[in-house]
Amino acid sequence: MTDRATAVETRSLTRSYGTGRRGGSEVYALRGVDLSVGQGEVHGLLGPNGAGKTTLCRILSTILLPTSGTARIMGRDVVRDADAVKRCIGIVFGGDRGLYGRLTVGDNLRFWAALYGLRGTGLRRRCQALLERMGLAHRADDRVDTLSRGMKQRLHLARGLVADPPLLILDEPTVGMDPVAAQDFRVLVDGLRADGRTILLTTHDMAEAEAVCDRVSLVDHGRIIATRAPAGIGALISRYERIEARGVPAEVAAALPDIPGVVTVRAAAGERLRIETEDTSATRAVLRRLVAEDVTEVATSRPTLEEVYLHLIGERGMTVER
């Protein structure tokens, strides 16, 4: 058994698929992933479609076997001890998938509770407590089809919690939700963190990752390319400092790329110019030039998580590969 404080641990985890063609090469969904998530941590997996996030979650959920490497949940191997792992995890989807629309809210929850071995009074109490916690008790007898997206997502969360698992895997949980419902959902996730539960969250939403995650891992081409706390992730590309200026004359803008250390110069929203520099000396040179040209509406900042993502992964968010 591994360290008790580790909830999820993968070592050299690899998953490949045959192309289905004779002589075709293997396609790798995961390549040697090493990941360690502490108990009680909210950990985000960020990456474009096809990066390997969902493959990783499927392996951790026991529904997909790794090609090589190991994965452990609460010290239990997901391949050799799958039955025990199943009782340690709750899976929460986003959107409409994963719920029975024609069943009532209460029946949905009772169905899943039965599958996790709950019975009788224990089942009823657990379901009632979850419905109350998720603010769904008043809709318990309504068909799921009639719920709003936000309510469905709360039911998803209740379903994931029905067996009281120490680890929750949230797969794009706020996809398609309006901002208010998404914010409500994040408050619920904060409550689960307070319970001491470990949460593994896949998302495309940088704001969500920054808001709820203790650490995030950037995933691309089946590899984890960085794992950091959201607040410190800008350090990964700290040489890219950002300057934004409004009202920069065209000839000045054209000359900025010639300053040593300037990485990119491009137009941003609101008629602003965004300049990225490799280091502080380049930043100072750009600021001196702008001030010398009477450009006074200037701001500097560190890269956000979104910018780090775009720098490291690129704008391939819609690329699907497997």
């Binding site: 009782r87 899976i91 989807f93 994963g98 071995g117």
Partner: peptide, 18 residues
């Protein structure tokens, strides 16, 4: 089509009974 197959596969109860 409902997206519940993965959840059933990940649940401890055997699929036959479900």
């Amino acid at each position: 089509t409902a997206g519940t197959l993965a959840l059933l596969a990940a649940a401890p109860a055997g699929p036959t009974w479900v």
